[in-house]
């Protein structure tokens, strides 16, 4: 257990001290400020527009962070050889994966928190009231990102190109949001292809589940069971993916 915490702490420190982390935040801040400009185009509902754009930006930047950091994490340890002294310790390899992942989630969490504070600040200035209700969306964004991040981590256990891993992870993210289109295409294709597409749509995590922006911005209600359901759904996938990553790490050799 201590090993997991040690690796977790190390990863968190790495993230918070990395230039990429702060770069993303600064860039995001600039874009947040520009949402104020964009909202000027519309005559009404400035708050809704800034909130909508803001949440979209948070999702987008969170996604970038999750994909880049996720695919980089274990990959860099392996490439540098820094993983060797960890493996030489009496630490089970799955604990290494777990510690790294938890550290990554902490980084992303901090990232999201800061981005949200920025958004709330912008809204406060512009609209004059604290829009705490937006935090509901934060919960689902975080869960969605933890799923994407786990996929990134999975690839980084064996891929030799971080660029490739990032692109594939991003691709899977897009597929996850296009399952409806997949299902529709399945209906229109031949037997074999249709079956393939349909099973893909069933197995794949449906990322549309995480999108509650509309309800949040317009103040519409969500089923109370939704929050626990989305958590279980995420856990199911994340645990499985990390399990696969651990299996790969277990069987791997290091130069």
């Amino acid at each position: 257990m201590r090993s997991i915490i040690a690796i977790f702490g190390g990863t968190l420190k790495e993230g918070v001290r990395s230039k990429l982390f702060w770069g993303i935040l600064v860039f995001a801040l600039l874009l947040f400020l520009s949402t104020m400009v964009v909202s000027e185009l519309s005559f009404a509902e400035k708050e809704k527009i800034i909130a909508d754009l803001g949440l979209s930006l948070i999702s987008a930047f969170g996604l970038i962070a999750a994909v880049i950091l996720g695919t980089d994490l274990i990959y860099r340890d392996i490439q540098n050889g820094t993983i060797q002294i960890i493996l030489a310790r009496p630490v089970k390899r799955w604990k290494y994966v777990a510690g790294k992942y938890l550290g990554l989630m902490a980084i992303i969490g901090v990232n999201l928190l800061l981005l949200s504070l920025m958004l709330l600040f912008v809204l406060l200035i512009y609209v004059g009231k604290p829009c705490i209700y937006l935090l509901r969306s934060l919960y689902t964004i975080f869960l969605e990102l933890s799923l994407i991040a786990s996929i990134g981590v999975f690839f980084s256990t064996f891929s030799t190109s971080q660029l490739l891993s990032s692109l594939v992870t991003l691709g899977l993210f897009i597929i996850g949001h296009s399952l409806d289109i997949l299902r529709m295409s399945a209906g229109k294709s031949g037997k074999f292809l249709g079956f393939l597409l349909k099973s893909l749509a069933v197995i794949f995590p449906d990322l549309d589940f995480y999108d509650i922006k509309i309800k949040v911005i317009h103040g519409l209600p969500l089923e109370s069971s939704y929050y626990s359901e989305i958590l279980l759904y995420t856990l199911g996938y994340v645990i499985f993916i990390l399990f696969l990553a651990s299996l790969i790490m277990e069987r791997r050799e290091f130069r």
Binding site: D206, E223, S225, Y226, L232, G236, I239, F240
Partner: peptide, 14 residues
Amino acid sequence: LCLFLITLSKPGLL
């Protein structure tokens, strides 16, 4: 367990 978690939560989410 993972399968269980996913299938349990899916209908409500749908």
